[in-house]
Amino acid sequence: MTTNFATSPTRASALFDRLQQNRYLGLIGLAVAALAPFITATNYALSVMTSALLFVMLAVGLNIVVGYCGLLDLGYAAFFAIGAYVSGVLATRYGWPLLATVPVVIVAAVVAGIVIGGPTLRLRSDYLAIVTLGFGEIIRITANNLTITGGPSGIYGIPGITLLGIDLSGPVGLYYTCVVVVALAVLGAARLGRSRLGRAWRFIREDEDAAEAMGINTYRVKLAAYIGGAIWGGLAGILFGAQLSAISPPSFTFLWSALILMAVVLGGMGSTPGVVLGAIFISVLPELLREAADYRYFVFGILLIVVMIFRRQGLWPARAVERQSRRDLREAEKHDAGKAKEVVP
């Protein structure tokens, strides 16, 4: 739905101040998401849109790790799986309401993030890719082999979400739950990206050695990014379980991790509107190509190459100056101009 608005603001974005742009963009996006069901509310449309929202959440979470901090994570689906399985097991085997599992999922995601990130974040970046990939496989295979996770059949009968006695498990209720949660998640991630921590992440992405030299504890900051991504992924997992009511290991393969990564890169690493757009694109495209099932992954592959060659900064790139407010910029300009004057005569 949002794609309709993509073209005009892209051109306009060159003119707009970043902050202002973000505020209105977010509102427009939210309005579109909130109004979409009034246009079409068939079960199919709602399920596709809910999936798209979940994908947005995953992409925004991965964006913290890959986009902000520049750490290549090829096993992001692992955190997604941890969230889905922890909440699913607690809900079906121990009868917890889904909302009550949220704190446990967050703890589990943080622990997993520390366990995998702790020893490996000191490694060279390429090794991190293979280690995270291996971690993704470990989680999936473990879920496939254990009895408590239901083995290869997985868990079924996961209840929907109820909040203060209101049943939100229907397609419409679930959709709006996702709209709210994902909007908060997007906002939260964008805020994080602009925070002090976010600046440290970007610094590390641009130049880790310089960041270290400037007194940033790069290891801890990277770990923070990793844990942040883990929490986002875990929470998305809960919604995933609530949406599908059944989860099984084939839903958490490497293909998923690759698709989420593609959404981030295609949209524009580090750019919140870009990543949201990329996620919607990647998630809805296969549905649009449903008729051409045989061709879709082929087209997909070609598309990725073409986009990378001709527009590698992504559909909606992050801008280099985004951390500065307009006033800062103006003052910097004045300052530079003043300096120049001093030098020229």
């Binding site: 608005f5 603001p9 306009a12 427009i28 309005a31 069901p37 009034f38 509310a41």
Partner: peptide
């Protein structure tokens, strides 16, 4: 410029709602 964008956007949403009537929540 901004209000124009918003206007166009609103109009588009309204148009879509009208053209696709029958399936929506309303």
């Amino acid at each position: 410029r901004l209000s124009r964008v918003a206007l166009v956007g609103g109009a588009a949403v309204a148009a879509m709602m009208l053209s696709a009537c029958g399936n929506g929540l309303a």
